[in-house]
Design a protein around this nucleic acid. Structure first.
Lengths: 195, 195, 195, 195
DNA sequence: AATGAATGAGCTTTCATTCAT
DNA sequence: CATGAATGAAAGCTCATTCAT
């Protein structure tokens, strides 16, 4: 039963294989087969395998941000908003484990190294903060004295990396965390970033 | 003239190249050249390239643990020991950036995905905890009520991942962290794991 | 609205691209685009890319011959007619550099290798001599003792190849030959074929 | 029965296939098979297929020149030396038809276009004339008034292209030219270049 | 024990050709 | 008639692994 949109079939197939096997065990031939598509079709939509990978990243990051933003209400205490934000990211990734694994692979590969820190740089230059509220929130928290006076990069590390690790455990399913445990975890990271 | 040397030359060369180029730009021919060794020699000591990589990981992990253990004195408050431990790991990795980069690459590649969670499993089964005092320390802290009553895995996440991120920033040199900033950072992670 | 147009658009586009890029950088997709035509259209008029190329050759050769014939008056001395003929061919190719480059490519490729010697064979079998007066002229010259008594093939070699080389230089513009220099050149080839 | 020198097997196989099929119907896999060699072996000796082709050309050109030079005695009249030179080139190519076909392909392909005129440029700048006596000979002839006062390029065209065409006919075997006919042919080209 | 020339499976990418619309 | 998305065979090239020396 052929899908209407072959481009999206390629993206889906690529994510699945890369998530399972890593970038370098994801030959284009396999991606094509998994997508029920000829190899040439990949190259109709993407200039190269590299471009495919970068576009998947860009596409999926945009999606997370959209999701997180939908859920986010810039009201309430800094802590309440912080917890909410962590929850959103966590929920999205747990519900889209392919995205989680793909991000993990991408950000720790030659492909993603350049992107790794660029969001924060952009934020410092006053750009795009509206699409990713965590940076904004932390900055606001620093100004009002709620958040530690520490390099933004480090505050993000104390939050984002921890979320990622929690997602990993939840996906691999060994812990079976309930909502309360997750809440407790984010509460713990909050203690590390707050004064 | 001990033969062991050539084996170690291969390990050293492999780490250097993988750190610089990543796993997939590290052909055995280049490793051999860098090690001043014939390509066949690699296969005398390692069954395959995969085995080489896994052995390097095992070897270097053992080394970090040995280093950390040497430095570690099981006295003083839990917090003091916690801070000391974080410092040890941080110092080792900052002074051995090749190891850091190798670990980072390994753990986020198909090679290491299986290993990523296994240490803690081992600990739970009563194994190897003696070589890696963090697990022991956290357990002890939980028993004496200083450390949060949370899955061990999560406590490790709140500590180890943060150390790694700090190392990355220090190595890449963007932040130029002084001792006080590093101390403040570990203090922050302590707040997240302690009651 | 004659349909012939699309066919001719394809021919024109193919010549332009082949002249600029060579046979092997002339994908059908590019030819189609240049011709403002769908890729499938090429295959309505030509059974394959090979057939397209062979037909272009046949078509353009016929055109040169027609042009040369139009210009040719079977009067005057053998030499005068020889010079006139050389001029005609030279002029046509210099004014239609696409044809020159296409012929050059074609005749020195696997496509054209079989055709390279066939015209003269045809002439010997009494065919097509009327469309290409050079063979006729040389034969007539031999009969009246003005032209060397040499294999026709060789006489053609002494003339045609030299014209082609002169055209190449003129098109590439390195020499900037004036009419007199061209005349002198053909005069030189005349000396080689005449008694 | 494996040959000692795999590099030369590759060169030989490449020449045979390219001569028969052209550059673009000479896949490296076929070259390897014909040479009784793995595909990787080609790349041990040549950085790329392009480099292989350029090196073959350089190697074989050097060989022709060496052969011609061995035979050449810079004594006697300009004409005698001219005839001798033409003979040498003709003999070499007829006895090494693979070289002839390879040169023909190379010089009329994107590979060789750059080299096509460079010898003459080099000569004008006073270089390498000693390895290819034709240019020297023609220049000397012009100075002593025996050779036409015409662009060197054109004089070469009147000689070399004609030799090439003669070789083509001889190799394809339709004419079965005897020594006398060949002599007569070169005599004819002499008439075109001499005053 | 040590070497590195040799191998060929497997990679990414191109492009002539087809066929549903 | 005309289209161009889709195809997959085949290209150039890499590199883990073997083995004669």
């Amino acid at each position: 039963m052929p899908t209407k949109n072959k481009r999206d079939d390629v993206v889906q197939a690529a994510m699945e294989i890369i998530a399972k096997e890593g970038f370098y065990n994801a030959p284009t031939s396999l991606i094509a087969k998994q997508a029920n598509v000829g190899m040439g079709t990949i190259y109709r939509y993407f200039k190269s395998k590299d471009e495919l990978i970068h576009e998947i990243y860009a596409e999926r990051v945009a999606l997370v941000r959209k999701y997180v933003l939908l859920d986010y209400v810039p009201k309430g205490s800094i802590k309440a908003r912080y917890m909410k934000l962590c929850r959103s990211v966590f929920n999205f990734l747990v519900n889209n484990p392919l995205d989680y694994v793909f991000f993990d692979q991408y950000l720790n590969s030659p492909y993603g190294l350049n992107n790794k820190l660029s969001d924060i740089d952009d934020h410092k230059r006053g750009q795009i903060s509206e699409v990713y509220p965590l940076l904004e929130l932390l900055t606001e928290g620093q100004e009002s004295g709620v958040i530690k006076n520490m390099e933004l990069t480090l505050l993000v590390a104390l939050t984002e990396n921890c979320i990622f690790t929690l997602v990993r455990h939840q996906i691999h399913g060994e812990l079976g965390l309930d909502d309360k445990a997750v809440e407790q975890f984010f509460s713990a990271t909050w203690e590390s970033v707050s004064q």
